[in-house]
Design a protein around this nucleic acid. Structure first.
Length: 459
RNA sequence: GCGGUCUUAGCUCAGUUGGUUAGAGUGCUAGUUUGUGGUGCUGGAAGUCGCCGGUUCGAGCCCGGUAGGCCGCCCCA
């Protein structure tokens, strides 16, 4: 016999888990709509051409590719086949792949539908994405992203709005967070210090590890990678992190001679505008070491982490949201000068955090109000009549399928969390009544069918 | 993609230095006076001990491989 098994990194969701996922989703969707965002959906499958080259080399390796239909090997190059050269062979046998995120499909969507869209285009999208990553806690191969993007406007009003939307969603979920913000312009200002774009890239990758390996760890690694000339800049960055507030960091930026250039000025102006527009900046922090991996960001970048003292001490998974501004993404698909900014909520990690801190409302339930229990086959028709009648009055209810033993039916009622059971046997049927039992108190009384509605809604 | 670790009943887990028919709790199921549960009692079913191979008279236990879970690296939601 074949043992049932799921592909690595994928999960089933039970009814209880779905209740909780929908709880999170509905809060987000509600906030998104209040800000005037509209929903779109795009296919799970995209052409590989659309996806490749947008996420850097690391990202490309994590794309799930889908084999072409039919006799896909017949068109493959003989040399690649005999050499078993997967890298060269893949483009010949796989034209499509599963989407890696929702931002690149959005860019494709915007370009393809530019005649129907009025800009600025504010859309939200709640859909799964796939990454061929090694699964771990908080890290799945299929997971949901909840994206909000504003395309076709370059004002930082949008950045500020997105920050506030993060705040609103997590306030409603009652989860404490901190939002880190930085600007690519500020990071680009370090280019003269590093000397070359290669050095700059290496520098960004290394400083991104700061919270793991510490200040000295980063300094050592810079030394090892031949970037010792950048250690002063790193030490300076660290000193800004110790400054308490945003104004002090901005002052420090103004006074640090090696990076005074246009790029810095642009970045600082935009950051300062965001801080001005956001109503409550208590959980918003300017963090000059925030780099973020995705190669398409050009302006502000964001990252959201849980910051809640109800979380278990040892519970740590990565960020639960992130995003930024991208000026050139639609350009790849032939639509120039369209700027976009967007952020993503990681549904699965938000779920994991809420569960770990026990922050889901206890009232979440999809149980029906009433279970109708027939004691004999001849009462089933009567039970179904009552059920239909109550349902048309908006009372969620169900008839237990079949005249099973009452014990079994009540066990089911308990397991599923019914508030009431209506017990029906020959006596009740003849008198046109039901024995209405309150499943919490255990009280039971014989009531007329017409009184069930009142009884249930009054208590 | 690399390293570590784990996998025994539907679920959570015991299983001593390799030695007869592999256990517990929970869940499931059937009884326990006619039609009353969430808390009683009695019984029952359920495991080729992840999978493949090896060592041995004999393997849940030792060895090799492989799949999956978890953890770390890489990267990220």
């Amino acid at each position: 016999m074949e043992k049932p098994q799921l592909p690595s990194g994928t999960r089933d969701f039970s009814p209880q888990m779905m209740l909780r996922r929908k709880y999170i989703l509905s809060i987000m969707e509600n906030v998104f709509k209040l800000h005037g965002f509209g929903a779109i959906e795009t296919p799970a499958l995209e052409n590989l051409k659309t996806l490749q080259g947008k996420y850097g080399d690391e990202g490309d390796q994590l794309l799930f590719k889908v084999l072409n239909s039919g006799d896909f090997l017949s068109k493959a190059n003989d040399t690649f086949l005999t050499e078993k050269n997967s890298k060269s062979l893949t483009p010949q046998i796989a034209d499509r792949g599963l989407r890696y995120d929702l931002t690149v499909p959005l860019a494709r969507f915007v370009v393809m539908n530019r005649d129907k869209i009025s800009f600025p285009f504010k859309r939200y999208q709640l859909q799964p994405v796939w990454r061929a990553d090694r699964p771990q806690k908080g890290r799945y191969r299929e997971f949901w992203q909840c994206d909000i993007d504003v395309v076709g406007a370059n004002s930082v009003v949008s950045e500020a709005e997105l920050v506030e939307m993060y705040q609103e969603v997590f306030a409603k979920l009652d989860l404490g967070i901190s939002i880190r913000i930085n600007h690519r312009g500020i990071l680009d200002a370090f280019l003269p210090v590093l000397g070359s774009i290669e050095n700059w890239n290496a520098f960004m990758v290394i400083i991104d590890k700061a919270d793991k390996i510490g200040e000295d760890g980063v300094a050592n690694e810079l030394e090892n990678r031949g970037l010792s000339h950048s250690i002063d800049a790193w030490k300076w960055l660290c000193s800004t992190q110790k400054l308490g507030n945003y104004n002090q960091i901005m002052d420090a930026l103004n006074q640090y001679a090696p990076i005074q250039n246009e790029s810095l000025k642009k970045g600082m102006n935009e950051i300062s505008a965001v801080f001005d527009f956001v109503g409550n900046t208590s959980n918003l922090q300017l963090d000059l070491t925030l780099a973020r991996g995705l190669s398409y960001y050009t302006g502000c970048v964001f990252e959201v982490a849980v910051n809640d003292n109800r979380m278990p001490e040892d519970y740590k998974i990565g960020s639960i949201g992130g995003g930024g501004r991208y000026d050139n993404l639609t350009g790849i698909f032939g639509l120039k000068d369209v700027s976009g900014v967007g952020v993503s909520f990681g549904l699965d990690r938000i779920y994991d955090n809420l569960e770990a801190a026990n922050l889901f409302p206890t009232t979440l339930s999809d149980a029906s109000t009433l279970l109708i229990c027939a004691l004999d086959e001849s009462s089933l028709g009567y039970a179904i009549d009552i059920s239909r009648n109550l349902r048309s009055n908006g009372i969620a209810n169900e008839v237990y399928p079949g005249a099973a033993k009452l014990k079994k039916q009540l066990d089911y009622a308990n397991a599923k969390g019914f508030a009431y059971a209506a017990i029906i046997g020959s006596t009740e049927k003849e008198e046109n009544k039901v024995s209405l039992k309150n499943m919490i108190s255990g009280d039971q009384e014989l009531v007329n069918v017409s009184d069930i509605l009142n009884k249930i809604s009054n208590e």
